[in-house]
Amino acid sequence: MGKRILVVDDEKLIVKGIRFSLEQEGMEVDCAYDGEEALMYAKENEYDLILLDVMLPKHDGFEVCQTIREYSDVPIIMLTAKGDDMDKILGLEYGADDYITKPFNILEVKARMKAIMRRMNKREQTKEEKTLVKGDMTIDRDSRRVFIAEKEMNLTAKEFDLLELLAANPNKVYSRENLLNLVWGYEYPGDARTVDVHIRRLREKIEKNPSEPKYVHTKWGVGYYFRG
């Protein structure tokens, strides 16, 4: 069965070209032309991946991405005409998995899409333990929920992915670059700040005292690890 994709862009010629190319690959494609329409499609349907333009009418791509992340971890690739690195970092911090700068080659778009979907499939297939128990912390991998002393922590999709990876490999130190590659799914050199931001937000949610963490620790000059 082919993958189902949502393409969101207010430039109809771009949408038409992407749709035609993806349908040639046997994919089922839905199209939206503004942020409101995109949110409606995303809420009512299940997709294998969403291609999401940044500059959209009604709600911009960052708002759409952030809203979708409240209830879904579907892979999202941001499409941006801007070259500003901060825009790209901001997109990732809102929960995007990748970004592609316009003008783009459709072959690159399809390659990035397939790589992300392969990683998602592999991640699902390699999960051995459905539940990780670390002291008073319980991580339910199936429902993607985290409890500490039976109280549920409200984590974003990327915060959960970071915690799951670290907790599944206790005392193993991951560099920021490794975490970008494993959690975001691709090499993103020079912008390891996005990892620091996510770790800080994660600690604010799961640690009683984020400045003296119990779970997620820093190995100064190296990276982060979960104390097992």
Rank of each mutant, 00 (worst) to 15 (best):
L6D: 10
V8T: 08
D9Q: 03
E11Q: 07
S21P: 01
S21L: 02
S21F: 02
Q24E: 12
G26T: 13
E28I: 13
Y33F: 15
M40A: 11
A42L: 04
K43T: 12
K43F: 12
N45H: 15
D53M: 06
D53Q: 06
V54S: 11
M55T: 04
K58M: 10
C65N: 09
C65M: 08
S72E: 05
P75R: 01
K82R: 15
K82H: 13
K82L: 10
D85K: 12
M86I: 14
D87E: 13
D97T: 00
D97S: 13
P103R: 04
F104D: 10
F104A: 07
I106K: 01
A111Y: 07
A111C: 02
A115N: 14
M117I: 14
M117H: 05
R118G: 00
R119D: 00
M120H: 07
E124F: 06
E129V: 11
K130Y: 04
T131C: 06
K134C: 02
D136E: 13
T138G: 03
I139S: 08
R141L: 14
D142P: 04
D142A: 12
R144C: 03
V146K: 02
I148Q: 14
E150N: 11
E152K: 05
M153Y: 09
L155R: 11
A157N: 07
K158R: 12
P170T: 06
V173R: 04
S175Q: 05
E177A: 15
N181R: 14
V183C: 10
Y186K: 15
Y188A: 13
G190H: 06
R193L: 08
I199Q: 01
R201P: 06
R201N: 15
L202F: 14
K205Q: 13
E207I: 05
P210Y: 11
P213T: 14
Y215H: 05
T218W: 05
T218P: 02
W220F: 12
V222W: 09
V222H: 09
G228R: 00
